[in-house]
């Protein structure tokens, strides 16, 4: 690539980033404050940002998990939520809540809202941006809290940590995955695929794209190129000039996306994805009707139909989740130099 075209590509990304920041700035009008406790945020606190819809069942464990890791404040956008999420969140001492009825899809799947809150509150903090069905684990997370990780990353001059999303599934059909509010969802969804993931370097954003897991194996066997991406950058030391591009898969500027590169020596994490709790069937029907989730809606109707058929994703070769060490052994995450 010539210097000129490299420069042009870099400039295009710069424009893209500015456009995202502008959208983020505009999207602040869409958010109504429900409960603002951000005044509590102290210097160096680790913050968590999420947008969600009707996640009352997952919330108690979600909050517990991340509090235990060392998140000090939660900033949450409720989108069109009709269950008791709002009440649960308002009762928490460390949660600030916004709500919006606007289209999730038009807000770039909620990322405009996230970018706005990150810009407004995330500066100079280590920020986790996750979905309600994602639980972050990283090497040694049962003994080392997040501040130990972020402290190490910072001493290393790293400003982000990459994580792979790992689809968890139950032992029988999806409808059998019962989980009471407050339960660890990996109890109801103990299985995952250890292999069958493929990856490629994507030069535009400088990230390594990962696809695979049970969704690719079962729902996208004919179109692996449409299978969901599994790479994410959930943890970033935020700067107001940063922006997430598509979900938390890719962020700008480009250097934030290099976390999976082995040569960096950085640890990587795994987001345990509890999409397939028994509510997933009902949810798939709803989402298909709402059409708020994918860029190409029509392509994914078949996917929703397949989920509604209540398939059994498990097989005799599925591995059982036994804590972060087992994920390292399978090569799904790594400790890098952080030993």
């Amino acid at each position: 690539m010539s210097v000129q075209s490299a420069w042009r590509a870099a400039y295009r990304l710069r424009l893209k980033r500015r456009q995202l920041l502008w959208r983020a700035l505009r999207s602040r009008h869409a958010l109504q404050v429900q409960h603002n406790q951000t005044a509590q945020i102290g210097r160096g606190d680790i913050l968590l940002f999420a947008s969600m819809r009707n996640e009352a069942r997952r919330l108690p464990y979600f909050l517990q998990h991340y509090r235990q890791l060392g998140v000090r404040h939660f900033l949450i956008v409720l989108n069109d939520s009709t269950d008791e999420s709002a009440e649960i969140l308002r009762a928490q001492p460390d949660v600030s809540v916004w709500s919006t009825q606007r289209s999730y899809r038009e807000a770039r799947f909620g990322m405009d809202w996230m970018n706005w809150l990150l810009m407004r509150y995330g500066r100079r903090h280590w920020c986790l941006t996750v979905d309600a069905d994602e639980l972050l684990v990283y090497p040694g997370c049962d003994t080392r809290a997040l501040p130990a990780l972020t402290g190490w990353l910072e001493a290393r001059g790293a400003s982000a940590m990459a994580a792979m999303m790992l689809d968890m599934y139950p032992e029988g059909p999806l409808s059998s995955a019962h989980s009471a509010p407050g339960d660890d969802p990996t109890k109801a969804l103990p299985l995952f695929d250890t292999q069958g993931y493929s990856w490629e370097y994507q030069p535009r954003f400088g990230n390594i794209s990962i696809r695979g897991g049970p969704r690719k194996r079962v729902f996208f066997a004919k179109h692996p190129e449409r299978a969901p991406h599994l790479h994410k950058v959930p943890l970033i030391k935020w700067d107001w000039r940063y922006a997430y591009v598509s979900s938390t898969h890719v962020a700008l500027p480009r250097h934030l996306n290099g976390g999976f590169d082995l040569r960096s020596g950085l640890p990587s994490g795994v987001l345990l994805h509890s999409k397939f709790l028994d509510g997933a069937l009902q949810r798939a029907r709803e989402e298909k009707a709402r059409g708020e989730h994918f860029t190409h809606r029509d392509r994914y109707n078949a996917y929703y139909d397949r989920i509604s058929d209540d398939p059994d994703l498990s097989c005799e070769h599925s591995a059982r989740y036994r804590g972060p060490e087992s994920l390292i052994a399978h090569g799904l995450m790594r400790a890098g130099d952080w030993t």
Binding site: Q195, R217, A221, H317
Partner: peptide, 13 residues
Amino acid sequence: EMFNGCLTDSAVL
């Protein structure tokens, strides 16, 4: 149809 590590026999995959 399946091999260790959940590899399927799908030719496309």
